[in-house]
């Protein structure tokens, strides 16, 4: 088991983990890596996020799309649950709201395969601490 033995250790770890996340986000691997986050807080799960996540995992594999699907916490858009964030290589991450299986299918077919946006985008309306 890795133990963090000092602050220097932790800093080193951060660098390598950031590089890993970067690699995943930028899709620098030969194939196009799509990253999808599903908001899975109580509110999201209650509105069907788990079904959507299972569907995405299954369908992306079936359709031969190389993607990483992870869970995350509440994005704050409770009125539009379930919400997912899709990050295509070389593009800004986009959040989609009201995602059910049908919408997920549309997102895979139109946005992930062809880069065509679909209805239901939720614009980012906040500043993060990284902006300051």
């Amino acid at each position: 088991m890795i133990k963090v033995k000092s602050l220097a250790d932790l800093k080193k770890m951060r660098e390598s983990l950031q590089a890993k996340v970067d690699l995943r986000e930028k899709g620098e691997a030969a194939e196009n890596l799509v990253q999808i986050k599903v908001a899975m807080a109580t509110c999201g799960i209650a509105s069907g996020a788990k079904v959507v996540m299972d569907y995405l995992l299954e369908e992306l594999e079936k359709r031969g799309i190389n993607a990483v699907v992870t869970q995350t916490g509440c994005m704050g858009y409770c009125y539009a649950e379930p919400t997912i964030e899709v990050k295509l290589p070389d593009a800004d991450a986009i959040v989609f709201g009201y995602v059910d299986k049908k919408k997920a299918d549309e997102i895979i077919e139109k946005y992930i395969k062809n880069g065509e946006l679909v209805d239901g985008i939720i614009p980012v309306n906040y500043e993060s601490i990284d902006d300051k």
């Binding site: 932790l10 770890m13 951060r14 983990l17 950031q18 890993k20 996340v21 986050k37 908001a39 807080a41 992870t70 869970q71 995350t72 916490g73 509440c74 994005m75 704050g76 964030e85 309306n125 906040y126 500043e127 993060s128 601490i129 300051k132």
Partner: peptide
Amino acid sequence: KQMRIALRNCGFINPENIDEYIA
């Protein structure tokens, strides 16, 4: 109008993976 400090990681990281928090 929003600014996220306490919520900085909510909806960004996988809460079940400490590596994403460290990154």
